[in-house]
Design a protein around this nucleic acid. Structure first.
Lengths: 339, 339
DNA sequence: AATATATAGTTAATCGATTAAATAAACAAC
DNA sequence: GTTGTTTATTTAATCGATTAACTATATATT
């Protein structure tokens, strides 16, 4: 079909062995062939438009120069951006990225891991989904180089790049408290994943430290399935209780989008009726009438760092574990009612 | 490091040749080994957790079960969705997708094509960028199976899946005319790409057919570089002229986002001061105060069809060319001022 | 001149899976 | 009992590139 040109063809044309061709074309092997022959080989390679077969090279070398990336949800711009950043950074280092989305489903993540390992990726970057601990342990056991990103399991020792979720949530809620809000609600995902636990812990500690006694009705959790309706019900309840919330902290961008749509439908005004702080930004928020205060995650740094850690781990003899925490930034705008 | 288990290991364990193992484990070769030995082999494979090395398989078979996808811009949700759909559909057929973004830059597209071909992808799906004709001709010449998507070159005979851009624009502008608008502007990209020419043609014909004499100031084109400022200037001019526009048709979602932000800053009200129709939808529009009338492209069908055409082309003996035009749909909402 | 040392190139094994062809054993046919 | 056929299994070549080990010159050293 194509790419008929192999080392053999060049060798034949020039009248040398394939070994000579290989030496001549690979950098760093200069001494092996005379300059004159090397030039003839290079000329022939160019003339025939030789493109090396990476598959053959990979088989021989045991490396594919490919990284696998498993994100939790492509349709979420946060992860989509991570994917893009990881790809760029990997390319910069001569690596190709193959990626897939687990859609928060551990079975799908297993499939992806197998597909990627069968394709001999040199390493993996993973946003782990719930109940995927055994996958991580498996990778450790198999000594596959990998780095977790965005999320990790505190009880499993592994390399990861994540943000300080506790601090992010704490600062966000503290900010609402300082803005004079007394009844601050939080909308989170129902998951055992550590990053979400940390966000909830940050929320709770901030309430405590502000001298606000939390109402259990103020912290609602929704499942991944039918987000739209669950969010609606949750917000409804937070607003319906005797002491309805006067501020709401969204634990993720998807929660914020769904929550705000419902809040708008109630004709509630942000920030007067309800102050808002969200996790993450998003193009979607650009048209929201009230500029949102939000927790900005250092997505680019997260992505870049994960690639760098992975490459280091792959080349490093030690195979050491590095755990990186990056600090998010609270971007204060109108929706929190202070500016 | 990992995946130490090869056919050889199983062969050794069971005490047979690697050929026997290969036959026993590949479906469709049932008759080749006795059931008893086959079972022992399968048991050993499971026990050792054998995972076939796809690289070796690819080298031998000359197929990688991988498709390459080159899109024009990952940060554009339209293309991001296409990427996702293509990936899903390809997975369904047992193919993995490696993809990259040309960022509308032909040099980058060349790089990507080479990277993907070196990795022996079995076929390519491409959103061609401007001035990439020679790339397409190269692929034809090399007999690489490929399908263009979203855009194509009418002067080059190749398989593609695209929408009827002329009709989409014609319908959109006709709709504005029927809504009583007399001075309808269009904001497009400055590019020679056929799909954009078609959108402009649709706009112009619709004006003509509505008996509206087009003003040359009403059709503005911006370059990809500094979109934000160019859009601002363009919209400014369309509004400043003696007969300022009373309706505006955006040729893409990115143009719409930038244009609307600027229009909002002018305190113009949609649709009263200015009626709007946009190409494409997007999460970003969900929060726009006035629901937008827009041209909905059948993204899922586009993506699925492109994969199907490619697979057919790859398996097909004829290598025939199929050109598919899908029809977009005008979704009418408030911004065009008719509902 | 004999020996050591570069230099330039080739040979052949290797990576892991597939598969055509060869072989061996079991059984049937006449 | 020789020949033919079926069934089960192995041998060995192959895909394309890399590279250790080897060979054959040419050049340098003593």
């Amino acid at each position: 079909m194509r790419n008929k040109v192999s080392l053999k063809d060049i060798a034949q044309k020039v009248g040398v062995s394939t070994a000579a061709v290989s030496y001549a074309l690979s950098t760093g092997k200069e001494g092996k062939v005379s300059e004159e022959v090397a030039n003839r080989i290079k000329a022939a390679a160019k003339e025939l438009n030789y493109q090396p077969n990476q598959i053959a090279k990979s088989l021989k070398m045991g490396r594919t120069n490919t990284l696998g990336l498993i994100i939790a949800d492509v349709s979420n711009p946060f992860f989509a951006t991570i994917a893009r950043v990881v790809e760029d950074e990997a390319n910069k280092h001569g690596y190709t990225v193959i990626f897939g989305s687990s859609d928060e489903c551990p079975e799908r993540a297993w499939d992806l891991i197998n597909v990627l390992l069968n394709r001999q990726v040199d390493g993996l970057i993973i946003v782990p989904s719930e109940a995927s601990e055994e996958q991580i342990l498996y990778l450790k056991d198999q000594k596959v180089p990998f780095v977790l990103i965005d999320r990790y399991f505190p009880e499993i020792s592994s390399s990861f790049v994540a943000i300080n979720n506790y601090k992010a949530a704490y600062d966000a809620v503290m900010h609402l408290a300082k803005a004079g809000r007394k009844r601050i609600g939080m909308l989170a995902y129902k998951t055992s994943l550590f990053h979400m636990q940390e966000r909830k812990r940050g929320y709770q500690e901030a309430l405590r430290d502000s001298g606000l006694s939390p109402d259990e009705n103020w912290l609602k959790e929704v499942r991944h399935g039918d987000i739209k309706n669950e969010v609606k019900t949750a917000v409804e309840e937070m607003l319906a209780s005797d002491d309805a919330i006067d501020a709401l902290f969204f634990a993720t961008n998807t929660l914020a989008i769904n929550g705000l749509k419902y809040i708008d439908s109630l004709k509630l005004k942000v920030p007067d009726d309800l102050a808002i702080v969200s996790f993450d930004e998003g193009e979607a928020f650009d048209f929201y009438y009230c500029p949102l205060t939000f927790v900005r995650q250092p997505v680019v740094e997260l992505g870049n760092k994960s690639v760098q850690l992975l490459l280091a781990q792959m080349s490093g003899s030690d195979g050491g574990i590095s755990q990186v925490h990056l600090d998010p930034e609270l971007v204060i705008r109108k929706s929190s009612g202070l500016v």
